[in-house]
Design a protein around this nucleic acid. Structure first.
Lengths: 189, 189
DNA sequence: GGAAGCCTACCTATAGATAGGTAGATTGTC
DNA sequence: GACAATCTACCTATCTATAGGTAGGCTTCC
């Protein structure tokens, strides 16, 4: 009894399929079957696969921006903020999926240009926010780090993406927790 | 002037293509063109794509086993050993590729069973070795860790895989270095 | 009646895979 | 040493399934 409109259902399904199978292993046919329409009708909503890819990533990126803004307004302090950030990844881990962006990053060389640009923007937005947060921690809380804030940021994003990747392949169940512990130890105040 | 036999050339090409494009985005046609034969001849050497996948992974896994044994015989001490291990990933980073296993882990749900089994074995072999190495460090060198050795192991593998993923997508250039620094800080003796 | 949403019917390109065949080197046997 | 049998490494031609995509027609609802 799906009250959500078809376009949204398609976005949701596409996102799930990309996260679980990757961009090159899902088809308009998969989408059509999942939503209960024909492939031609999928093309009505999203003329090309690239259009759909951009739409999914744009929505995902907007969600990230909203989450980061929420953290910034509701939480103070570097470590608490980073904990909130890391928490975003726990959802994916518990579903056994990749982060949408991590999955697309893997397929980067095969993506349409517009989709690739979205992926780059997402990663940049993530790392820039972390970087700013750590820099603020250094200035305002006297934190010290084992390498530059921008390297720390990229490392955190990478570690989280990687832990999602590895926990799917039998690496264990609570790797995001472990990443959190390992990473925050290196931020000492 | 390729003196290497065709089967090896196919393995090499397949590995590169999987690392750069992913399992579902390379075809027998790509291989055939790269090596200079027809797709039917690729099937002669590797009857199915699954056979080829298994062969590539098996070779890769054997290389890992050899590397780990070399480290164990040539190096003593937990930290030096882990540094050597991490060094394996620098090669991939400098080529801008994923680790073969990391790339296949992403495509896990879409892989033939035999290939998936190889991927799982590789990850298990990696994490088990790291785990053993850290446990030895705790017993023999009195190291302390911020979480269990097995979690530390999975986290290190995840972080390295993730750093390869993210550095390809504009995250920066020396993330493996950063992972090394961040990770080894948490091993204190 | 006109737009939104979906349909049938089709197209082209490519995927992985198979059948059947060939040139040339290797081997076994008298 | 000659000759048949076999093997290796390719080939051409073809198959079936699926990919993404298009044109145009049928409802439904304001």
């Amino acid at each position: 009894m799906s009250t959500t409109d078809t376009a949204t259902q398609l976005l949701d399904t596409a996102q799930t399929l990309i996260q679980t199978r990757g961009y090159n292993a899902y088809s308009y046919n998969d989408l059509a079957e999942a939503v209960g329409i024909k492939t031609a009708s999928v093309h009505y909503h999203f003329p090309s696969k690239a259009d759909l890819g951009v739409a999914v990533m744009a929505r995902y990126r907007a969600q990230l921006a909203a989450s980061l803004e929420r953290i910034d307004t509701a939480t103070t302090g570097c470590e608490p903020k980073l904990r909130q950030f890391i928490d975003i990844y726990r959802t994916a881990e518990s579903c056994g999926t990749m982060c949408l962006c991590g999955s697309l990053a893997h397929d980067l060389d095969t993506l349409p240009d517009e989709v690739r640009a979205e992926v780059n923007s997402y990663i940049e937005a993530s790392t820039r926010w972390i970087c700013r947060t750590i820099e603020a921690g250094i200035e305002q809380e006297g934190l010290t780090t084992s390498c530059s804030p921008s390297d720390m940021a990229a490392t955190l994003v990478g570690s989280l993406q990687g832990s999602l990747l590895v926990s799917r392949a039998g690496g264990g169940g609570h790797l995001v927790d472990a990443v959190e512990r390992v990473f925050l130890v290196t931020l000492t105040g």
